[in-house]
């Protein structure tokens, strides 16, 4: 890998080395991840490299993120590089860890227990995560829930929580600062801000913890917070849909999702105002702190159900 200067990190399950022709990228990355610096990430670490290209002498400089053999065009502005690095890091973490079940989910620790918080993009999982952190919860990830299917341990992948402009005021209410002040922009031109895990304090990052609860986050018909329980099959499908590496497990992925749902307490939670949602969630978990709740007794054993939706496909 030539004479590039490599910087080494271990971000939870991911060991990586980073080199950049743009020095400020190292400064940015260090701001976000300096607590995860290691002296040597090892020979099989993921590598990320920021390179600059000028296809023609009169062309503007283009930035490329290379990650273990793949290339991502990162635009002409240095401000677009960090979000591309984050994207590449997520993608490579998924690809390089097929032994785990990985879900598009926030992951937190509350009183020694792992909590998976799967949600669609834009639901507000990063904002909720940040509020929970401010209440003493510990952080595993705001993006990927990494579960060992052999041990049911939830592993840390403590990326810098990423928020978009609409979440900014709420975060600032908590007294947290975002980085950088004017945001980074990806190709979709939306501003993105990061919260350094360093700012959360070393104790805020949890080690691997036993997974006990799965809370699907969503918006309800009426203002939340409130929870509903689904049948085991319904919960499994919800969870399976959030899997980001289903092809790594093929038919086992569904079987493992069933096992996981049966191993955990599972709810769907309609989010409300965060000041109400956080204590509501804590009370719920405290009430069911160890033993999986039986799935909702199906009252429809002999009761006809409407034909639609009869069949749900993922």
């Amino acid at each position: 890998m030539g004479d590039r200067q490599w910087h080494h990190y271990q971000i939870g399950v991911t060991r990586l080395r980073l080199a950049s022709v743009v020095e400020e990228i190292i400064t940015h990355f260090d701001y976000l991840y300096r607590q995860f610096r290691v002296t040597d990430s090892g020979p099989d670490a993921l590598w990320l490299e920021v390179a600059a290209l000028r296809p023609k002498p009169w062309s503007r400089t283009q930035y490329i993120v290379r990650s273990s053999g793949r290339e991502f065009f990162a635009g002409h502005e240095t401000g677009s590089i960090i979000p591309e690095l984050e994207f590449a890091l997520n993608q490579q973490t998924i690809l390089r860890n097929p032994q785990y079940l990985i879900y598009h989910s926030a992951a937190m620790e509350f009183e020694g227990q792992g909590v998976l918080l799967p949600a669609d993009s834009g639901t507000g999982k990063t904002t909720l995560t940040t509020y929970l952190l401010a209440r003493g919860w510990r952080y595993l990830s705001d993006e990927l829930g990494v579960v060992d299917p052999q041990t049911w341990m939830l592993h840390p992948y403590p990326k810098a929580p990423c928020i978009k402009a609409e979440g900014l005021a709420l975060i600032e209410q908590l007294g947290l600062t975002v980085y950088p002040h004017d945001g980074f922009r990806l190709r979709d031109k939306r501003q993105r801000f990061y919260i350094s895990p360093t700012q959360l304090g070393r104790q805020a990052i949890a080690p691997a913890v036993p997974l006990r609860h799965i809370i699907f986050l969503g918006r309800g018909q009426v203002p939340g917070p409130y929870v509903e329980q689904f049948s085991t099959a319904e919960s499994t499908m919800y969870l399976y849909r959030t899997s980001v590496n289903p092809m790594a497990h093929r038919e086992q992925g569904l079987a493992r999702a069933i096992d996981l749902v049966q191993h955990c307490n599972v709810w769907a939670m309609a989010l409300g105002d965060h000041a109400a949602t956080c204590p509501f969630l804590e009370a719920l978990l405290a009430e069911h702190d160890h033993h999986p709740v039986a799935p909702q007794a199906n009252p429809t054993i002999k009761v006809y159900q409407p034909a639609e939706p009869l069949c749900e496909t993922s």
Binding site: S231, T232, A233, P246, E251, I258, T300
Partner: peptide, 19 residues
């Protein structure tokens, strides 16, 4: 699972829930 079925089609790599 209870009265429901989860089906996985290995040829198409698709999963289905039937109520």
């Amino acid at each position: 699972l209870d009265q429901e079925l989860l089906l996985y089609d290995p040829n198409l790599d698709r999963s289905h829930r039937l109520n």
